[in-house]
Write a protein that binds this DNA or RNA. Structure first.
Lengths: 355, 355
DNA sequence: CTGAAAGCGCTTACAG
DNA sequence: CTGAAAGCGCTTACAG
């Protein structure tokens, strides 16, 4: 049993066993046409030589790589790493591997990621778009390649493709109506870019909530930016510069809320006494803050699982409507950052206390 | 310009251009032998037909996939997602993609991950071992395949391979000596399994710190377990069951410390007044806890970058010693959870306050 | 049940 | 500067 550096191939096995490559291949794939005796001999030799099938070669002929590309803005963000965990779980159970790409919120890098994944012949792509995405063209040409793709959480407005999301309008509206019911009137929104689905939809939910309570929308209270902590810092600083603190702030997501929160802590502004604060997503740190964050929970793991399942179904031939939409449930999580919850919560919502 | 479902290949381009496949291939690869005029024609046709080179086919002949496998216990843990982010950054800049696998801390799944990655002909593997790993055999046979692999953060004791780590002994010792200097004597250790490098080394550091101050090691104060939040919960509950709280606890890492912290919060045990608590890693939540956590910072992003660089160097032919070790710097981060820091910090350490 | 032929989409010598 | 031949390691018809 020599330990050669050369990788052992079907040919090597065939030679040693005095069989054809075809038969060895079939034996390894447990093809019914091969005798049990032959299978046993082949398996044993394969083990002895530490044979690893070359799935690259197999992919070339079968035109399936059993690989799916996953593009996230930043894997380091716990929402996305939880989604990816769900994707990996479903994928690996179904015999797929994932190639992980980060766009770093950059449309150009995202386009390159897509090209790379196509070159690698992935069976499909799962993508949550970069905040800087504006141009639907790359997705149109992606569609033309025939490689299926599914959006999760964020999609680019104007691109039709299957997606796994939550009802962002409804979720945002519920959250803001909750603030209104607590007695807040001057509610600011740290909004995301409107070309990105979650930016647009959470803004719409905010507006609908105000409208439902006859509160006029004050455009000065809407500060548009990206989806990351630094954007929350910037927005909060802008609010402070103006010197006119709102009663409450609805941030487009938890990272933005946490950016705002950190600025408040630094400047000695008390949450929720001086300003109430709510986010969206319920990422892991949100419950652990010194002032735990009220937020709308998104089932991140499940989003990843459903997105992977949907993509795999499409890849395995199922006809899926291009506008297929899987909408998962959100859940209002009331914690201390929104203030005055104590009385209200007893009547309406289960309270999740941060520890 | 028809939008065919069939993928366009070199052959298609060649036919349209009245050139051979070879010439088209060379033009696309910017080979010096091809005339500029031809290159221009080829590029333009490639763009027109939305051609994506099949890197699977290329890999088959070149025996390089420009893909590296990354195996982490759980991507959802922020330490690992930060490492992976560093890996992805360096890899993508060097033209490599990453296949991400989770072992879920399970040695058997890890072994399967390795097999899958070998089948996919990855150019190398980056791995932080599962806590349940005991058997070095899978790594020995991995070595025999000739596919390079590099450990990061955690390696399996008894396996020789290049690795990117921190000085865990030194870091743990420094942390525990700091506790001792604060006046604590009965210091418990929530230890990791000793077959995993970080479990062994952080325990050794703990013992060395005690020895340096002539404090006898009390085996009852060492509780062995895994590396996750649930293990911290279990260890803390065991300590409490005994009804004999130590003065301080050194948890093998931040997730374990946070598990212990949550139990304390639930049971009304005050940190640090009733028990001081320190971790290891400085993950993102640690600074955000209501009682921010004192810990030893590991440069996670940099660990990922260095590991990727090292693997790529090996892959590109550089001779690297099998016991090559890249040791990165740790940094003591003093926050409130260790107590009594106020006086001491002024003389010795920079204070990072959680917000 | 086993095998010879052809081919997946490329690249690598080798010729001219 | 361009191309014909061979081959990477497999699988898929087709024969026997």
């Amino acid at each position: 049993l020599k330990l050669s550096r050369q990788k052992v191939t079907l040919k090597d096995l065939a030679k040693r066993l005095n069989l054809s490559v075809v038969t060895v291949s079939r034996a390894l794939n447990d093809h019914p046409d091969v005798s049990e005796a032959t299978k046993a001999r082949v398996l044993s030799m394969a083990r002895k030589l530490n044979y690893h099938p070359n799935s690259i070669a197999r992919s070339l002929v079968q035109k399936k790589t059993h690989t799916i590309g996953v593009i996230v803005p930043e894997i380091y963000h716990s929402f996305f790493s939880e989604v990816v965990s769900g994707v990996e779980e479903v994928a690996s159970q179904a015999g797929y591997q994932i190639i992980l790409c980060q766009s770093n919120e950059d449309a150009e890098k995202e386009r390159k990621n897509i090209d790379t994944l196509l070159s690698k012949q992935v069976d499909g792509i799962l993508i949550s778009v970069a905040e800087s995405d504006r141009d639907p063209q790359p997705f149109r040409s992606l569609r033309q390649t025939g490689t299926p793709f599914v959006f999760f959480d964020r999609y680019l407005v104007g691109v039709e493709a299957p997606r796994v999301i939550v009802d962002d309008v409804e979720g945002a509206q519920q959250l803001v109506e909750y603030l209104i019911q607590l007695g807040y009137q001057r509610i600011a929104h740290f909004a995301g870019y409107p070309q990105i689905s979650i930016g647009r939809d959470r803004l719409v939910g905010y507006q609908k909530a105000l409208a439902a309570h006859y509160i006029p929308v004050d455009p000065h209270l809407i500060i548009e930016g990206g989806f990351n902590e630094r954007d929350g810092v910037v927005a909060m600083e802008e609010i402070l510069t103006r010197g006119d603190l709102p009663e409450a702030i609805f941030a487009v997501n938890d990272p933005v809320a946490i950016g705002a929160y950190k600025v408040c802590m630094e400047k000695g502004i008390r949450v929720p006494e001086d300003v109430a604060l709510v986010g969206f997503s319920d990422i892991d740190v949100s419950s652990l803050l010194a002032v735990p964050l009220t937020t709308m929970r998104q089932p991140a793991l499940q989003i990843g699982q459903e997105a992977a399942r949907l993509l795999i179904r499409i890849n395995e031939g199922e006809e899926v409507n291009p506008s297929e939409e899987i909408v998962l449930k959100t859940e209002l999580i009331v914690r201390r950052s929104c203030g005055s919850a104590i009385a209200w919560q007893k009547r309406h919502v289960k309270v999740h206390e941060g520890v």
